[in-house]
Computed example of a mutant assay.
Amino acid sequence: MARQSISLTPPNDEWLKSQVDNQEYSSKSELVNDLIRQARKQQAEIDWLRTKLEKAENGGFTSDTKEQILAEAKAAVNG
Rank of each mutant, 00 (worst) to 15 (best):
P11E: 09
T62K: 09
K52I: 07
K28G: 01
L31F: 09
A39R: 14
Q42F: 06
S18N: 14
N33P: 02
Q4C: 15
P11K: 09
A44L: 06
R37S: 13
Q4E: 14
Y25R: 00
V77W: 13
E14R: 12
S7R: 15
E30S: 01
E30N: 02
R50F: 02
D64K: 12
N12P: 01
V77T: 08
S18I: 13
L70Q: 12
G60W: 06
R50D: 04
A39M: 11
P10T: 12
A39F: 10
A39Q: 11
P10M: 13
Y25G: 00
L8Q: 09
Q4F: 15
W15V: 11
E24H: 13
A76M: 08
I46V: 14
E24W: 14
E14N: 10
L53E: 04
G79F: 06
Q19G: 00
G60F: 01
Q23Y: 14
R37I: 11
L8Y: 07
Q42G: 10
V20W: 03
K41Y: 11
N12Q: 12
L8C: 04
P11W: 00
D21E: 15
E30W: 06
V32S: 00
A71W: 04
R3L: 13
D47H: 04
Q42T: 12
R37Q: 11
I36Q: 03
T65Q: 03
N33L: 10
S29K: 07
I46D: 05
